[in-house]
Design a protein around this nucleic acid. Structure first.
Lengths: 206, 206
DNA sequence: TAGATTGTTAATCGATTAACAATC
DNA sequence: TAGATTGTTAATCGATTAACAATC
């Protein structure tokens, strides 16, 4: 039986990964939990605890090898899989994501786009053709899509999720402000922009 | 001395708000914590606990008045302040946010845009003129901006944050993948898209 | 060796869940 | 009244922080 790992820990791993990648590009060979913590406003104990969940990556008295730790965290996160994304709904947000270059540096690539609006179907964004949602099954199979990105209005999001699941995606990244139902074998992450804005509003009102 | 309220609670309030608003538009007058919980996959005990932090909003044996509770939560979150946003960096993401209509329904409005690229300065997005970042102080004062939205590359984000703080914004919504330093009186929320993607990657790799 | 830093166990803190009296 | 549902206290669970032996 595998011990479950807290979401809080998983959420910090990308921060470590990003910082290590930056340090690697700056030719730093070794980093301590203390230094990494200072860069991210996270306590060194927290970092060591998070890493200890997955193994022993450091050397006592020395610290962590920057390149080595970066690779290990990338592997824990599964970034070496080079996941393939399809974006459904190429409005402003979907179009922006189709052009977003930060994804590729993490090993994700956008390989298919869908919309139901005939005025955009057939056009291309960032060199990727926009398909009719009706073609979803065939296109997703052919392009070997792993993750569906939902950037349609809330009212259409569950229908799109059902189509993506039927087409065989393994994960869904949902930007629509609504709770989706997907089978347990499909991973789901909700990206809710209204939470950030509301949290800011709350803080500013205190 | 005010008791501190957990971030987890604050993060759930927008979900309640959104669901109540939807129910209100469907002419529902009363909702129980049980029904609200079913819609959001949150336990009714959790919802009652969250609300109890701020007061007594329900009637025992009956439930909550949908309109009344929605208004109360909106007030707790400070949404009645109708915050004014300025977006710095009108690339793909900044441009998408400038066009994003879901903000206005929460009481936020985009009132100013900035970029340093002369090819976009002077143009308009969604009817809002793009200003030179050099004009930030004057424009932010004149437009009475409350919140600065940072959608520039990570390497420029701290400089932009410093400019926004100097111009007097009360909050910063940061989309750049880097830890920013701002004075304690300025609220900061980091919107980190790589966390969601990485969390999906991790789940799909298990 | 002395100083530094990890990995891990123990202690604390905070959030969620359970239970139930109050009351509509 | 009986059934339903809140608000709140107590119990549990899980995550963070502190402490320190191991060791480079």
């Amino acid at each position: 039986m595998k011990k479950t790992i807290s979401q809080a820990t998983i959420d910090r791993l990308p921060l470590y990964f990003r910082t290590l990648r930056l340090m690697e590009s700056e030719e730093n060979k070794i980093i301590s939990s203390d230094e990494l913590g200072r860069k991210l406003d996270i306590t060194p104990e927290q970092i060591r605890k998070d890493l200890a969940t997955f193994g022993q990556f450091g050397k006592k008295g020395i610290g962590y090898d920057v390149h080595e730790l970066k690779e290990q965290i990338g592997n824990i996160l599964g970034l070496q899989n080079h996941w393939r994304l399809a974006i459904v709904g190429v409005g402003h947000l979907g179009g922006a994501l189709a052009n977003y270059t930060n994804f590729s540096s993490l090993g994700f690539s956008v390989v298919a786009l869908f919309d139901k609006n005939s005025s955009v179907i057939g056009s291309a964004i960032n060199g990727i053709k926009v398909n009719n949602v009706i073609e979803m099954n065939a296109v997703i199979a052919e392009a070997a899509v792993d993750i569906g990105v939902i950037t349609v209005p809330a009212g259409e999001a569950q229908d799109v999720a059902d189509l993506l699941v039927a087409a065989g995606v393994k994960g869904i990244w949902n930007f629509a402000p609504i709770k989706l139902s997907v089978p347990p074998e499909v991973s789901l992450f909700n990206e809710d922009l209204s939470i950030g804005l509301s949290a800011l509003s709350y803080q500013m009102s205190q």
